[in-house]
Structure formats: structure tokens, C-alpha cells
Design a protein around this nucleic acid. Sequence first.
DNA 1: GGTGGATGGTTCGTGCTACGAACGAGTATC
DNA 2: GATACTCGTTCGTAGCACGAACCATCCACC
Lengths: 154, 154
Amino acid sequence: MAKADGEQMGIVTALVRVAFLVDAVYADSAREYGLTQQQGQLLCVLMPRSYGMGELGGVLGLAKSSLSGLVDRTARRGLVRRETDAQDNRAVRVELTPEGSRLADEFYAETCRRIERLPSGLPDAEREVLADLLSRVVRDNEVPPVFMVLDEQG
Amino acid sequence: MAKADGEQMGIVTALVRVAFLVDAVYADSAREYGLTQQQGQLLCVLMPRSYGMGELGGVLGLAKSSLSGLVDRTARRGLVRRETDAQDNRAVRVELTPEGSRLADEFYAETCRRIERLPSGLPDAEREVLADLLSRVVRDNEVPPVFMVLDEQG
DNA sequence: GGTGGATGGTTCGTGCTACGAACGAGTATC
DNA sequence: GATACTCGTTCGTAGCACGAACCATCCACC
């Protein structure tokens, strides 16, 4: 059943291609702030609060050693720091530095502007439907909070 | 306006989190076939036809040097090969080997199965709406064919 | 209190991946 | 024939991924 403006792709192809698109926009936005995609992602996750390494690894889907490296490199940039956990001397909590928080805010805001443009060809009502359907997919699949909901900011 | 099962996130957050989800599933699927995400992506792009390096770089969004490296590593695996372009001796065309084609088919089929499960919590009608809306976002943003539409296969 | 297992995180080794600059071979234009 | 441009590779560099091994700390059990 071809649509007027070309054959419709299935849900699978549409999801993969949209993911590719979002990744590209996200990576371009990060690059503007001198960040890699992974560093940007780390900063975004840390915006609401600090995380332990175990939980952070779970959210980002990274092996422990990968996360140690990512935190090392980002800490070396002065954007995050490790604090000893008062309740468990084995653990550390990772949090944004003031510089990291400032950069995260700017990166997050700019990334929101860019991502927001992607569905701008849809009428408002359809964009609302899209947001609802995608939100339910996110919830059904228990996607971790890799990007803040807009009103979560301080 | 909170939904019954939690506050709805905006379109931006939903898009980013869905992309994160799809990426994770795609990477897991690739790993099952001994592929990295980028190698899997390369194989998928090459399924319909061969590509020149310039065009391939454009589709995948990679620098020329990055693509040379990716093709090198994948060729070393015996999954792709370079052919001299008959019309331009500077150029090469990259195509799947028989082994690469076989692996690409399996990887693609399995990835389709896994991605197809993601929106399975939605009723059929809503999934159809989601496919339509996402397809339009893909078209509006001129996303390159990084993943085949299902009926394109031979 | 001592012991053993589990947990939290780091280091190491290895390979993949990204980019810009520079380069060589081939093509197109004058 | 000379020059500019194109195509793709190589080089140098840095980031990033994982599993194995390790060390320090915590907790349960005796």
C-alpha cells in the first residue's frame, strides 16, 4: 500500500532510521561544545543528580571498565568529579562540577532545539500523537533516563 | 497534563530515549553475529547494491579516513570487497562478498525481529500510526537508507 | 573476632572507531 | 602540457568498547 509521497516503510525501518537521524543530530550538537557523543550523554545523565558508578553503568549500558575510562576523560576535562560515598567507602559518586553543569545546561538546551526541529514538518496534533506513542514505547521498554524530560531542570 | 501512568515526556526526550533504545538493541544484535554496530550498519547499507566510497561515506555520515578503516577491517573479515570502478580508475566500489551477504541477511532478519518487539505493547492501529508519523519524519529529514525497507530484499 | 564471599571500582591489554592533514593517482578543464 | 580538482589511502592522535584480573571494602556467618 504505497503512500502518495512514496512507499511507506515499516515500523522497524522507520525506528532504525529515526534513531540514526537523532544520533547524528546529537553528535553534531555535542561536537559544537567540544564533546563527544558519549561525554555529552554522560553530562546529560548527571544533570538531575549524582550517580554511583554501578547505577551509572546500568543507565548508560556500559561495562564497568568503559565507564571508568569515560569518567576519567571527562574528569580530566574538569566537567565531572568523583566523591567518596559516605556510606560505603568502596563506592564513589559521580557528579557534575560547576563548569560541567554549565556546559551540560547549554549542550542540553541546544540539543533540545535541534531535536525539536526534526518533527517540525508534522502538524501540532500529529506531533503530539507521536510524542505520546514514543513515550509509551519508552515506558514499555523501561528505557533509563538518558535524557531529561524538559520540566525536570532546576 | 500528566498521563495516568506517569507524566508524558515531550517529543524531544521521547525521540532521544527511543534512539538510545534502538541503538542498544541494534548493538546487541550485531554482537550476536560478532559484529560491531558500525560493521553491522555497513553490511546493511550494502545489502541492496554496491557503493562508491564517497557515496557510502555520505550515507553513513563518516569521514573518508574513518570509512577507509571500517572497510579495511570488514574486508579483512572477508565480508566486503573493493572493486575497481570501470569508469573511474581513482574510485572503488564496495560490495558484499557471498559470506558478507549471508551474514548481512541473518543479521538484518534478526535485528528486524528484535526491533519489531519494541513497539509491541501498542495496539496494531497505533503502531501503524507510529510507523506513518516516523516515516514522515524520516522523509522530511532526508535520512539516507541506513536500513532497508522490508520488501527491498531480493 | 576471624573468615570467606560478594560488591564496587580500577587497571591492563586489546581492538575498534573517529577526525583532520597530507599524499598519490587519476580525471577534467584550459 | 599544465593546472586544478577528485577519489581514496595513510598517518597521527585521541576516544571508546570489552573481558580478565586485581584491590579495597562490606557483610554474613561461624
